[in-house]
Design a protein around this nucleic acid. Structure first.
Lengths: 209, 209
DNA sequence: TGTAAAACAGGACGATCATCCTGTTTTGGA
DNA sequence: TCCAAAACAGGATGATCGTCCTGTTTTACA
């Protein structure tokens, strides 16, 4: 029951945002009475904090941290995630945006507790990438790379690309940013590999809302 | 009077967001009665649309488009904007975030009218940078650069860095991303210029909220 | 099996929200 | 000067919000 509430809250917060998600809507969607919800989550803030700490953090872990750590290198991991997310968005035909960024924009200034919880997820995300770069460096790669700065750009590029993709309802910005990151990587590594063909721009069909 | 309403709405939307800004609060802050506000803006949506089209678009024009077009090159313009914004944030000691991104996250999925208005601002922003790159290319520079992809990455990196800066209340991500973008630029251009010294991390004092 | 705590039901509560209404004042052109 | 339109005043209204309250049921353990 508690998990059913978290399920619908997670989905509603991502699609409608925190303030636009009313407790009544969540109760109806989860099939839960007021008393039950109030028992597990005394306030709406408590519910949102649980969503952030239990669901958003897990989503970042699943879609970013684990794949990057499992990849052959930080750069390969980043490319894999960008491509996987872009492909998923194009397949489902709708861009809901990044859960972490959506809530970060709406709640960071609303309450310090929200901000701290969200900031720690950002920090873990960045640190996972930076740590992977440091691992790569032990094999002689990425010698000229500052791990923290590299991680900051990777996270920022993804977050910003998702923001554009959500607004345009088009996964194009993700593919553009990945291509530009890789082109620069190629040049920096002096590989001189020919740039990829110009991708076709996929216009997504509008989704549910 | 109409402008006074737009002033407080613009500020409140950026600091608290759309849904958390009540008409009553805006009326009190602007010193405007309900009748006056309803005369100029029949609905809250109409008010937000006016803020987006008249104020947010102007803010992007002022802080990004004009400086980039006035700069010696696209890369110089981008660096100037990143540094100017980072310096401003550190000086005022508080990160309110990017107006466009804040509203884009909260409103893109809420209403198609909002989404279209926000998407056109993103498009103008990207096109201004891409256009500057094309101008640079006429002088022989940036031959290997795809203007649209380059612009996408610049906008995404800024948007994402601002998102992190807002959540961390620290301008560091902006400086990190700029440094990483420039390092890659240096390598790509084979200039071999020594990387900038590691910047000091400025922890901003908490602001008003 | 007995029992205390946890989990859940379902409605009540005051506050706040966005909108709309009927008037009054101000403005600008004839 | 006249007058119609725009600008503004200020309260009314119904809906919806988040929270809380009093009971009932289920669970876990001794």
């Amino acid at each position: 029951m508690r998990n059913r509430v978290l399920d619908v809250a997670e989905a509603s917060f991502q699609e409608r945002g925190y303030h636009a998600s009313s407790i009544g809507d969540l109760m109806a969607a989860a099939g839960v009475t007021g008393g039950a919800l109030h028992h597990h989550f005394p306030t709406k803030k408590a519910l949102a904090l649980a969503v952030i700490e239990e669901r958003v953090a897990a989503a970042v872990e699943e879609t970013w941290i684990a794949p990057v750590q499992a990849a052959g290198s930080a750069r390969e991991g980043i490319r894999a995630v960008f491509e996987a997310v872009a492909a998923e968005l194009e397949q489902q035909g709708f861009v809901r945006g990044c859960q972490l960024n959506n809530l970060a924009h709406e709640l960071s200034l609303a309450d310090p507790d929200f901000r701290f919880a969200l900031a720690s997820i950002f920090a873990a995300w960045r640190e996972a990438i930076a740590g992977k770069v440091r691992t790569d460096q032990q094999t002689g790669e990425e010698q000229g790379t500052d791990p923290d700065r590299f991680a900051a750009l990777a996270v920022a590029a993804y977050s910003g690309a998702m923001s554009m993709a959500k607004t345009a309802q088009d996964a194009g910005p993700l593919r553009d940013c990945l291509a530009e990151l890789e082109r620069r990587t190629d040049s920096a590594a002096s590989l001189g590999r020919a740039g990829a063909k110009r991708r076709r721009r996929v216009l997504l069909r509008p989704g549910k809302p």
